[in-house]
Computed example of a mutant assay.
Amino acid sequence: MSESKSPEEFYAKLKKQLQDTAMWPSEYLYKFIVPTKGDKTNLVEEIFNNMGAVIEKKQSKKGKYTSVSINVRMKNPDHVIEKYKEVADKVEGVLSL
C-alpha cells in the first residue's frame, strides 16, 4: 500500500480494479508475509477456515518470515476487501501483497 494514500483510498481503488477485471464470484489469490514467530500463520489460516481455501505456506531462508498464499472463491470485491481488513485487524505485523 502506498504511503501517500489512506487505507480508504487504497481499498476504493482495489475494489474498482476487481470489478473491472473479473466476473464474480471468482477465484482470488491472497498473499501475505507474516512473522514466523508466534501463532500468526495459524491466525491467517483461521480467518479463511471453512471457505474451501487452498493455503500454501513457505518460510523465508532465515525462517524469520512465512509467506502465506491463499486461493479461495470469493463472492464479490467487497468480500475480498473484508478479508484483507480482517487479516490486518487480527494479525499484528502482517504485510498484504
Results as ranks from 00 to 15, higher is better:
95 L>N: 02
6 S>R: 08
34 V>F: 00
44 V>G: 02
17 Q>W: 08
5 K>L: 13
82 E>S: 09
2 S>H: 08
65 Y>A: 00
9 E>S: 03
28 Y>W: 13
4 S>C: 14
63 G>A: 06
57 K>C: 12
41 T>Y: 08
74 M>H: 04
66 T>R: 02
48 F>A: 11
79 H>G: 02
89 D>Y: 07
74 M>G: 07
26 S>C: 12
42 N>H: 00
94 V>I: 14
46 E>N: 13
23 M>I: 13
89 D>Q: 13
40 K>E: 07
6 S>L: 00
47 I>P: 04
74 M>P: 03
63 G>Q: 04
2 S>L: 01
43 L>V: 06
42 N>P: 01
64 K>G: 06
86 E>R: 02
93 G>M: 03
15 K>Q: 11
86 E>I: 03
4 S>Q: 06
10 F>V: 15
32 F>N: 12
65 Y>L: 14
70 I>Q: 12
95 L>W: 05
14 L>A: 01
64 K>M: 09
84 Y>N: 12
50 N>P: 08
31 K>P: 12
24 W>D: 13
58 K>S: 14
82 E>R: 10
61 K>Y: 04
84 Y>G: 15
32 F>Q: 10
68 V>T: 15
64 K>R: 10
11 Y>S: 08
41 T>S: 15
76 N>W: 00
46 E>S: 12
47 I>Q: 05
34 V>M: 04
44 V>F: 11
37 K>A: 10
77 P>I: 09
31 K>M: 13
66 T>W: 02
80 V>I: 09
38 G>T: 07
42 N>D: 04
58 K>L: 04
55 I>A: 09
9 E>H: 05
86 E>S: 09
88 A>I: 02
63 G>K: 02
21 T>H: 04
8 E>L: 03
26 S>I: 10
86 E>F: 01
92 E>A: 13
40 K>T: 05
91 V>Y: 06
34 V>S: 07
48 F>E: 14
